[in-house]
Nucleic acid binder design. Structure first.
Lengths: 196, 196
DNA sequence: ACCTGAACACCGTTCAAGT
DNA sequence: ACCTGAACACCGTTCAAGT
């Protein structure tokens, strides 16, 4: 609050005329960032819509490196969050998923998206691939090959060739989306009223 | 540090004779918690091993509600973390995944696991299902059906029937594991030296 | 209506002084 | 070697006093 006041050329105490407190402020910022994520509207291709918002979310987080940690620490009930959840569920329901399946699909996708961002920041995997080879080498140096043979082997793989973060994100995303599609098809063929 | 000192019947300043600082302390606690996760040894069934460690991780987090937030905020380089990563990669490599595929599979699985825990705490989805119906109803009350129709419909589904957290976790986990298995099979059949 | 200055109750951390 | 007391530089927040 003091630092923010300094940035605004005002005393910290003055801020309390405009905000109830620090929590109120952080909640507001959180919802603003969530609002930057591309919320899919009722789209023709649900799979494409889900992929687009996934990459959009990861893009927003990389634009605001502090955002994911902030979002993780807050309970989100802001309007942008509600619109986001409603938008995603809307696409899934529109695609033919049941309410329960849509809830599960939402959980699976968002768990993956937020979890990936978490792993990305923790493992210092930046956007470029330049520093991943360096971190891989440092892992090789620190960890003794005898103690951690598997870690050593994987680190060795990326000590020369850079680790492609975007490709890795797409890898897991495709697993989930393809699995969801398979479930959707199976459900349709099990439904006697469905158009084959 | 002051509160911890009080618990130990000692002054906060005294702690600095045993720990370099608060960060050092939190890193130690983090690695202790990570050490509680069941690290799979070279197992016969890689899929079962991955499922077991996933549920074990979620179990550890539910036993220590503060743990996931703590882990999320730390860069982990402790011995338990290294053993964890090595153990998981070891199982994947042993199953026949390439180093690159193992790294991607590790990212996908751990992203999902940690992300799910994050969603679970944020959405206040406890272990039991009793309070999920209450939260679902409160969502129904707060959000106007006209503004958020999809959210309203899904909340309506869980307003009566409780939301099964374990089943939801298994839902997404199965999507990823089945997808990985399919990739592994495809890779094997593409390899002329593979035993069919 | 909005800002300021001073104060309050907290932090983590340092360090000379004790034993 | 380990603990203590006091201090330091920070927090977020409150509130009477100003304009």
């Amino acid at each position: 609050m003091r630092a923010l006041g300094r940035r605004l050329g005002v005393e910290a105490a003055s801020l309390y005329n405009h905000v109830t407190g620090k929590d109120d402020l952080l909640d507001g910022i959180t919802d603003l960032v969530v609002g930057e994520i591309d919320v899919p509207t009722r789209a023709a291709d649900w799979k494409d819509a889900m992929r687009r918002r996934a990459t959009s979310a990861l893009d927003v987080f990389s634009r605001h490196p502090w955002a994911s940690a902030l979002i993780d620490s807050r309970e989100q009930t802001g309007p942008a969050r509600l619109a986001y959840v409603d938008g995603v569920l809307g696409v899934l329901l529109g695609a033919g998923f049941s309410a329960e399946a849509a809830a599960n699909a939402f959980m699976a996708l968002d768990s993956y998206i937020y979890g990936f961002e978490r792993q990305r920041t923790e493992l210092n995997l930046g956007e470029g691939g330049a520093d991943t080879t360096a971190t891989a080498r440092s892992v090789q140096m620190a960890a003794s090959p005898e103690a951690y043979p598997a870690l050593e082997r994987v680190a060795g793989e990326f000590a020369t060739r850079p680790y492609d973060v975007a490709a890795s994100f797409e890898f897991g995303l495709a697993l989930i989306l393809d699995g969801l599609e398979r479930l959707l098809m199976a459900g349709r063929s099990a439904d006697p009223h469905a158009i084959q």
